[in-house]
Amino acid sequence: MQNRQLLESITIRLLNTHEELLAVKELEEMIWASDDPVPLHQTMTAVKHGGMVIGAFVGEHLIGFQYSFAGFDGEKAYLCSHTMGIHPDYQRGGVGEKIKLAQQKAAIAKGYDLVLWTYDPLETVNGNLNIRKLGAICSTYIQNCYGELPDILNAGLPSDRFQVEWWIRRPDVIGKLANPLKKREMDAHTKSALHFELNQQGDPEPQSIDLTQEQHDGPLVVAVPSAFQDVKARNFDLALRWRMATRGVFKHYFQNGWVVCDFIKGDPTQPVHYYLMEKSQSRTVETGHSI
């Protein structure tokens, strides 16, 4: 109830004035104190040339933002969704989802049908939002995408990323957005591409990787730690093992025509959640737009 009341009190709007974009820059500096914010002149230019900055407000107080710019790969124009930040006091309350839904409407109004962005596949809060709730898909794995990053979430690990595609006009995406509580479940035809066991501390450890399922007709699942940052804080070497194990699985299956199409989130107390993959030829998937 508290989250629902909060969300109902939040207003979302497109930002374009100097004062509004300066407030975005200041919020970004506060959220990522160890990183450089996007320069004000960059956001001001982007919103005039096919990009957008979306702000989330409680009253007149900016508590979240999303910055996108126009992209083009030589064949297709799309919206590149670059950064989204939520004030720490309002995180994990559905604000990010509300901003992304506003982004979808604004992008369609500008004529886009595709939005691209990257995120760390081991961050399951993002996986749950991007894949399960929004209906984005992924068949592109970028190894060490941004090089070494110094912030607390990334320090010491390769900055591997999923590049996701959000086909914002597709019927299956619109259907998923209209039914946010509908969940995909594993069944007897689902096979696992990465097996794990719990160690003495209760943390999941990757054990074996199965790269032999290219001809499997059903779905595959890939386990990831449900609380990766907690694992990293307790056992950095284990966190690095998860990075390398999942890198090997995703790169292999993406190269062999598979696509991440859903995210299966279990009970919060469970040690792992799952990405669900299917063969791309069994779906209407458009890929190949890289940035």
Rank of each mutant, 00 (worst) to 15 (best):
G71E: 04
L101G: 12
Y146V: 02
G64C: 10
P37W: 00
Q103V: 08
H41D: 14
A109R: 14
F72T: 07
I86N: 01
A155F: 15
H82Y: 11
E60S: 13
D73C: 09
A33E: 15
F69P: 08
L114E: 03
I63T: 02
K48D: 05
L153C: 12
C138F: 04
V53L: 08
R132M: 02
E75Y: 15
E60W: 13
I63K: 09
I54N: 03
A136F: 10
I86S: 00
N154F: 11
K105V: 00
A109D: 15
N144M: 07
D151H: 10
W117L: 06
L134I: 12
G127P: 01
Y90S: 06
S34T: 13
P39H: 11
K100R: 10
T83F: 14
D89G: 12
D113Y: 14
K100T: 00
I131K: 04
G59H: 09
K48L: 03
K48T: 08
D35I: 11
Q66F: 13
K48V: 01
V115G: 05
E97M: 09
I152V: 15
L153A: 13
C145Y: 15
G127S: 08
G51F: 09
Q103F: 00
D36H: 15
H41I: 03
R132P: 03
H82D: 07
T43A: 13
N128Q: 11
N130L: 02
G111I: 07
L157K: 13
T43C: 12
G59Y: 12
Y146H: 03
C138A: 11
Q42E: 15
M44S: 14
L101W: 14
Q91L: 03
M44E: 15
G85E: 07
Q42A: 14
P158L: 06
K133R: 14
G71V: 07
Y112E: 00
G74C: 03
F69E: 06
E97V: 07
G94H: 02
D113C: 09
R132N: 09
Q66P: 12
L116G: 02
H49V: 06
I54Y: 11
Y141R: 03
K133G: 04
N126Q: 09
P39V: 02
R132I: 01
C80T: 06
G94T: 02
K48N: 12
H49L: 09
K110C: 02
D120N: 02
Y112A: 05
V53I: 10
A136L: 03
E97Q: 14
L114T: 09
Y90N: 01
H87T: 10
V38S: 13
G156A: 07
N154Y: 13
V95W: 01
G94M: 01
V47F: 11
G74F: 08
M52Q: 06
L122G: 00
D113V: 06
I142S: 05
Y112M: 01
H87L: 08
S81I: 01
H41W: 15
E148K: 14
G51K: 02
E123G: 04
H87N: 07
I131D: 00
D120S: 04
I142C: 08
P39E: 10
A46E: 12
C80A: 12
L62S: 10
Y146G: 00
A109W: 10
I108G: 07
Y67C: 04
L122Q: 05
L79N: 06
K110E: 10
T83P: 13
W117Q: 04
G147Y: 13
T43Y: 12
I108Q: 13
H82E: 01
P37L: 08
G96P: 02
